[in-house]
């Protein structure tokens, strides 16, 4: 069986996989990182989004062997070791951007990449368009959009709505 070496959330792993094993299966079943979810089988829902070398990727659409040598970040690797949440996680909590929580890991990972790639900031419309690849059945996206709008200010070091709320 092929061997894959990859770094997940800062930790190196070498695992044997079948040729057909998907990255999400490696993460969930072999590394027991079950925070990354599988919500569909046609690459529509985005529940499985992780970062591969810094880019958001649907891990159900990448073979594990294609991730050989890559640096992967999953939802479990976002918070600081002391437990401090990433600003996007914090914003999701503050703005009630999650209900059942199933789409949330993929939504958060997509949102972080979306914000990072738009340093000039995103409008509400751009955030909605940027979430094309992620489905949520609970929230109607209203609060997800608000959370991302707030988190982008924090991530880009601008005075944020979140910070204002905290004052």
């Amino acid at each position: 069986m092929p061997q894959v070496t990859l770094t997940v959330n800062g930790k190196a792993h070498t695992v044997e996989v079948e040729g057909r094993t998907l990255l999400v299966e490696l993460l969930r079943e072999q590394l027991r990182l079950t925070g990354t979810h599988v919500g569909c089988d046609t690459s529509q829902c985005g529940a499985c989004v992780v970062h591969v070398d810094g880019d958001s990727v649907k891990s159900c659409t990448l073979l594990a062997v294609q991730a050989d040598g890559c640096k992967i970040t999953t939802i479990e690797g976002l918070a600081k070791p002391d437990g401090t949440l990433h600003p996007m996680q914090e914003a999701f909590r503050e703005y009630h951007a999650l209900q059942c929580g199933f789409c949330t890991p993929g939504m958060v990972m997509s949102a972080i990449d979306l914000v990072k790639k738009h340093p000039a900031g995103l409008s509400e419309k751009e955030i909605r368009e940027g979430l094309e690849g992620n489905l949520c059945r609970c929230t109607g996206y209203h609060n997800i959009v608000k959370a991302i709008a707030a988190a982008q200010d924090v991530m880009h070091g601008r005075r944020s709505e979140l910070a204002r709320a905290a004052e």
Binding site: R28, L33, T34, G35, T36, H37, V38, T74, I75, E76, L78, A79, L85, Q89, F92, R93, L98, G101, F102, T104, P105, V108
Partner: peptide, 14 residues
């Protein structure tokens, strides 16, 4: 929210 946001939810398939 904390467990859902940090990937520590426990759904049946987990």
């Amino acid at each position: 929210d904390l467990r859902f946001l940090s990937g520590r939810g426990q759904y049946t398939d987990d």
